[in-house]
Amino acid sequence: MKGMPHLADTDGLTVGQVSTRLGVTVRALHHWDETGLARPSLRTPAGYRLYTAGDLERLHRIVVYREIGLGLDRIRAVLDDPTADATSALRAQRRQVAERIDHLQQLSVGLDRMIDAHERGLLLTVEQQAAIFGPEWNPDWPAQARQRYGDTLQWQQYAERSASRTPEEWQAVADANAGLNRALADAMDAGVTPGSPEANQLVERHREVFSSYFPLTRQMQVCLGRKYEAEPAFAAYYDDLRAGLATWFRQIVDASARAHGIDPDTATWQ
């Protein structure tokens, strides 16, 4: 090639040798050659390209700039544009790195909360739990739930919600549950019958309120209604609100399920 120094004029290194010396891939060197970012200046009689000491110096600067995060177009401008201000480019890059570090630190905090939520369920102190959920709340319940349901999808969904939920948001959840319980008890006192529009509306409200923990399907709601009636701890909780409320709640859920084509006797947790 006219104007290209010949091997006899000076020594040079092959692509493989440069790759080893600078710790970059041969593919990257070929790409930089093809795009004109860093082309070898020598050529052997057989046509193989070789790098000079000056080429290596340019490559070294490319590697350094690339390692600190500059894009190839920006690197080209810094190296080739006589008006480019390398210091300004580096300062701008430092600002971007600082922003990424801050973002990564926030991600780290979020990951810590997510891990804690998966392991503990509630990211609230015992005092906060008592203030939000009332004196009857047992702070051991989340750990018991983790032991019982920790390998389920629903626990994972619950933990993901818990990880980002503030005490104020938990208070809103507790208030929604309390309001629902009052509405259920009042409806039973008023003689609302299973399958009526009023009862079906309460069933939908229960699904909406409960979904603050994890998405609740109609079949899952049927299973919950039967659990509330059959398990002594749940039954006692609802029957303390109104005698017979656990059974009445199961009945209105069953009736709503039938209206949506679900047989409560064969419903499964899905």
Rank of each mutant, 00 (worst) to 15 (best):
G71E: 13
A235V: 03
A117P: 12
T44K: 06
A243I: 01
R258D: 05
Q129Y: 03
E99S: 01
V64G: 02
M220W: 10
R39L: 00
L50Q: 14
D240C: 02
R226S: 08
L202V: 00
R21I: 13
R207W: 00
V64I: 13
Y158Q: 11
G47D: 09
V126L: 00
S212K: 00
M114T: 14
Q147G: 15
R205D: 12
P82L: 10
A159S: 13
T217A: 10
H118M: 11
A255W: 11
N181I: 09
G54N: 13
R207F: 00
V192H: 06
I68F: 08
R218N: 13
A46V: 05
D175V: 07
P215A: 07
P194K: 00
K227T: 13
L184V: 10
R76T: 02
Q144G: 13
E204P: 01
Q219V: 03
V63G: 05
A178V: 01
A159Y: 06
V64Q: 09
H118I: 06
A199P: 03
I252V: 15
L7Q: 15
Q157F: 03
E160R: 10
I75H: 08
Y51Q: 02
R74V: 11
R207G: 07
I101N: 02
G244E: 06
A84D: 10
D85P: 11
A199L: 04
Q157A: 12
G121E: 01
G121W: 07
S256M: 01
N200M: 07
T10E: 14
I101S: 02
Q171N: 03
Q147A: 14
Q106W: 04
L153D: 15
R258V: 12
I262V: 12
R205E: 15
G134S: 04
L245V: 06
D189Q: 14
A243N: 12
Y238D: 05
V18T: 09
V173M: 09
I262D: 05
D11M: 10
L37N: 05
R120G: 02
I115S: 12
P135Q: 08
Q201S: 13
P135N: 01
R66N: 04
L180Q: 05
R242D: 03
R226G: 09
P142F: 04
D239G: 05
L216S: 06
Q270C: 09
